Every structure is written in C-alpha cells, then in structure tokens.
Simulated scan of single mutants.
Amino acid sequence: MASPSPSRPAALIGWRVLALVYDFWPVLALWMVASAAFTFAYTWSGHATRENIPPFSALQWVLWVVCWLITGAYALLSWRRGGQTLGMRPWRLKLVSIDGGAPSWRALAIRYAMGSVSLLLAGLGFWWAWLDRDRMTWHDRASGTRMVRLEKR
C-alpha cells in the first residue's frame, strides 16, 4: 500500500547526516559523564587509579550498552517533546508519523532500534533513502514515521 503523499518535502539524506553530526556532540558529552562514573566506580572498587578498564571485559560491554541507552533516551525524549533533536533544529528537520501527527513511544523505540542497526551496517538503511520511491529510510518504514523539512520562518 502506498503511503499518502506528505504535505512537506521529505528530508534529504544530506540534511539527516548533518543532523547526526551535530547531535554527536551533546551525546558525546553524556557518554563522557557515563564513562567518568564507570571509571570512578572501577577505581573505588579497589583498582589502581591509573589502571584502565580492561578491553573486552564485561564492564566495558556494560558501558557500551549504557551509552547506547543514554543515546536512545536523548533521541526519544527529544523526538517526543517536539519532534526534533538539537541537531535537527538548525536544518529544520522534524520527525512526524506517516499521518502527520506525533509518533507514539513504540514507534520512536522501533525507529531508534532500526536506526542503530542501520548505522552498524555502515549506514545502509540511511543510504537506502536514495533508492526508495518515497525517500524513506529503513527506520522510517519500520516505525511508521518520516523526517520532513520545515519551511523557513
């Protein structure tokens, strides 16, 4: 079934990539806070101050999962609050459901999970938008949402 034609133009892949780059910086700051907390807990548990968390240890994998969850919380709360993250605002991008309304929490969670898979596959789900007739990414299709570009004020 074809999706209804949007009233606003679809967001092009270039704008989405720029928004991701912009959003990387606040997320990186949140990751640093989480890493500092893990490092403090690691040294507090009896390890030497100059000793790093061992690579590929269970604690390091837990830190990766925590950072992924922090990033998800940032994205979902931003999308739910106004349809935009900090990185989407300068490029006038907004996330809406296919029918034009606000997406549900479930749709946002599906979008974040599929977007993560897409990024892990070298962004293949993002690049798919160039081939898609409606310019939608994998996570747009899976979640029933779409990214639109707002008009200039």
Rank of each mutant, 00 (worst) to 15 (best):
S118I: 01
L76W: 04
L131R: 06
A41K: 00
W44G: 15
R81S: 15
G82A: 14
T85A: 00
S118K: 05
A75K: 01
S45I: 00
T39M: 14
L86A: 13
Q60P: 02
A58R: 03
E51K: 03
L86I: 14
L120V: 02
Y74K: 01
A37Q: 05
F40R: 07
K94P: 12
S35F: 05
Q84R: 04
Y74W: 08
F126S: 00
G72M: 01
T39A: 14
A73I: 09
R89N: 06
T49H: 15
T43H: 08
W64P: 07
L119N: 10
G82E: 11
W44L: 15
I70Q: 05
D99N: 13
V66H: 04
L93F: 04
S45M: 03
R80P: 11
W127H: 11
R92C: 09
S118R: 02
L59F: 13
W44E: 14
L121A: 15
P103R: 00
M114Q: 03
W105V: 12
I98L: 15
P103N: 03
W91G: 05
R89C: 08
S78D: 09
N52E: 15
A113G: 06
L76R: 07
T85V: 01
V66A: 07
V66G: 06
Y42G: 02
F38Y: 13
S78N: 05
L119M: 15
S57H: 03
S104I: 06
V96K: 04
G72T: 02
G125N: 07
A107C: 11
G115A: 07
A37D: 11
V117R: 02
W79V: 07
T43A: 08
Y74D: 05
G125F: 05
V65H: 05
Y42Q: 01
G83Y: 06
A73G: 08
R106M: 06
P54E: 11
W68P: 04
I53Y: 02
C67F: 11
C67W: 11
R133M: 12
K94G: 09
M88Y: 04
L69F: 08
I98T: 14
L131M: 14
L121H: 01
D99I: 12
A41E: 12
L131C: 11
A75S: 12
L69P: 04
E51W: 07
R106P: 09
A48F: 10
M114F: 06
G123P: 00
V65T: 11
K94T: 04
R92N: 08
L59A: 12
R106Q: 11
A129H: 01
L121I: 12
R81Q: 09
L59Y: 09
A107E: 06
V96D: 11
G115Y: 00
G72I: 00
R111T: 04
L86W: 14
W128A: 08
I70S: 05
R80I: 08
M88L: 14
D132L: 08
W128K: 03
S35M: 10
T49I: 15
R81W: 13
G101C: 10
C67S: 12
A113V: 07
V65I: 10
C67Q: 09
G83R: 00
A122N: 14
T43F: 09
I70T: 07
S35K: 06
L69Y: 09
P103M: 03
G46Q: 06
